[in-house]
């Protein structure tokens, strides 16, 4: 009897699932096209973020790159600017990379004592000796000058009661 009830319930559940309209599926995001190589940059230690980094602090970073297609050569590079100093590690790597393979470089830098600096990571892949594809990512670190700026805009309502930011 119990089995029969369970079977009936399962059948009803299946029917319910089968009758859910296609449009009832979760919303989807249709994203813009991407190149077949991706690169990311961030602190190696989890939990370290732009907000927690202090001027002069030494921080480990990792640049990761993945290629969607076989690349006869991948070139991974990080460029420091704006007072960011290299403490240890290497800022470059080159070599072949297989489809879906992740390559990375790690290094430590010192956060600028004054102002903001950045690390720009670039991954370039060469395919069949002909074509190069480049992808970049950037990480800003350091404290910007704390100049109290007058707000650029005022928050108001328009004639229909909608919120507006007025420049």
């Amino acid at each position: 009897m119990n089995y029969r009830r369970i079977s009936v319930l399962m059948l009803l559940a299946m029917l319910c699932l089968a009758t859910i309209p296609y449009s009832a599926a979760a919303a989807k995001a249709s994203k813009k096209p991407m190149l077949p190589v991706t690169v990311t940059i961030g602190p190696t230690m989890p939990g370290v973020g732009e907000d927690t980094l202090q001027p002069g602090e030494v921080v480990a970073f990792t640049v990761k790159a993945t290629t969607l297609a076989d690349a006869s050569e991948m070139h991974l590079e990080a460029k420091l600017s704006g007072g960011v100093e290299l403490v240890s590690g290497t800022l470059e790597w080159a070599g072949p990379a297989g489809k879906g393979e992740e390559k990375q470089i790690s290094f430590t830098v010192r956060v600028p004592l004054k102002g903001q600096g950045s690390i720009k990571a670039t991954a370039t892949i060469l395919r069949e000796g002909k074509r190069t594809v480049k992808s970049t990512a950037q990480y800003v670190l350091g404290k910007g000058e704390r100049v109290k700026k007058k707000p650029e805009y005022q928050q108001k309502k328009d004639s229909k009661g909608r919120d507006i930011v007025e420049y």
């Binding site: 979760a26 995001a29 994203k31």
Partner: peptide
Amino acid sequence: GLTYYCDGPVPDSAYCIRGE
């Protein structure tokens, strides 16, 4: 995230934070 079109009318925390 990247630039994208969200087709869902209901806001969600991931992409459609203001709905479609």
